[in-house]
């Protein structure tokens, strides 16, 4: 049995629309170890949600198509599973928390029924028992048991997200996929929900893929970090490696664009330019047009992820020069 609960290799996902082919994910590879949390960081449009949906084989088809690659969940390839196997796996071995709690719940079913449904699908218990278990789950996420009879519209955003978490964790999955779980919430509620998630993951000994564009959240909750750009991983390693010994110019740009509390009044430093149009990706490195270190070679060749020490990998041609290092690392 491998150490990794999840292993994705060379995943390629396209969306074939009338206006053209959107190359959402272009040769993605990463792994998540058991009981570990991986933060997947990137801007909107980088392909993060598509990656998460692929793990459940839920990419909407049409127009989405998983072109190639393998996704090993606990050793079994998700992309080769039959519909029945997928239905057994979803919610049971892997669960997902979605971004917008306001729309993630069925408006015409009670909250208790929606949690109980998860139980009834995977465990052989009567519906009464399932509902009782649902009430316990509500308690676990900090909601009064009596509210199991209420409908989603009677809850606030933060509470709905807790319900979504309850649904996800009911069958004690081995891997939790969280797609920007706190983005749609108020800042104060964000902290509460994150704390709750951390606690539950720790006590249930689950692995988690946390998708976010918020570096602060990653720093607080994740063991490992993967940085995604234009459908590929450009840097991956432990949180310490990526934050303190940054390798990729894009990651550097992300850190630089964060406002610095100590140097208030200074101008913000955004990364110049825009992410490339996924229907029209450049031949070489996707980041080259915006990269301050780019050379001619970068525009022609796509860099591969290479191991740079420890568990830290980066996809950047600059490192062919052994002396190269980012400006950020010069200043320490």
């Amino acid at each position: 049995m491998s150490d990794n609960i999840l292993e994705i290799k060379d995943l390629v996902v396209h969306y074939e629309t009338d206006d053209g082919c959107v190359n959402a994910v272009n040769g993605l590879s990463f792994s998540i170890g058991r009981k570990k949390t991986l933060g997947l960081v990137g801007e909107t449009g980088a392909g993060k949600t598509t990656t998460a949906l692929s793990i459940l084989n839920l990419v909407p088809d049409p127009p989405g198509k998983i072109k190639s690659g393998s996704i090993l969940l606990d050793g079994r390839d998700v992309l080769q599973m039959t519909d029945k196997e997928l239905e057994e796996m979803r919610g049971n071995d892997v669960a997902m928390i979605f971004q917008d709690p306001m729309t993630a719940l069925n408006p015409v079913m009670t909250v208790g029924d929606q949690i109980a449904e998860s139980i009834e699908l995977h465990q052989h218990v009567s519906s009464k028992e399932a509902f009782e278990k649902a009430k316990e789950m509500l308690k676990m996420v900090g909601i009064a048991e009596s509210r199991a009879y209420d409908y989603p519209h009677q809850f606030s955003g933060g509470m709905r997200q807790r319900v979504v978490i309850a649904i996800a964790l009911t069958c004690k999955p081995k891997l939790l996929l969280s797609d920007e779980p706190t983005t749609a919430l108020d800042v104060t509620i964000q902290a509460q929900v994150l704390e709750l998630m951390k606690e539950l993951i720790r006590s249930q000994q689950m692995s988690m893929l946390l998708i976010t564009h918020d570096l602060g959240v990653v720093a607080e909750t994740c063991d490992d970090v993967a940085v995604m750009y234009a459908g590929k991983i450009v840097e991956i390693g432990t949180a310490d490696e990526v934050f303190n010994h940054t390798l990729h110019p894009y990651t550097e740009g992300l850190f630089n664009s964060l406002p610095n509390l100590r140097e208030r009044g200074e101008e913000l430093i955004p990364i110049k330019g825009l992410m490339p149009d996924p229907m029209n990706l450049p031949e070489g490195c996707a980041f080259a047009p915006r990269c301050p270190y780019a050379t001619e070679a970068c525009e022609k060749t796509q860099p591969e992820l290479t191991l740079m020490g420890g568990t830290h990998c980066v996809a950047c041609l600059a490192y062919r020069d052994a002396q190269f290092s980012l400006r950020r690392n010069h200043n320490g």
Partner: peptide
């Protein structure tokens, strides 16, 4: 490098 930045900026607008 600055040139490159300006070029990509023009195309976009």
């Amino acid at each position: 490098m600055e040139n490159k930045m300006e070029n990509s900026h023009e195309i976009t607008s």
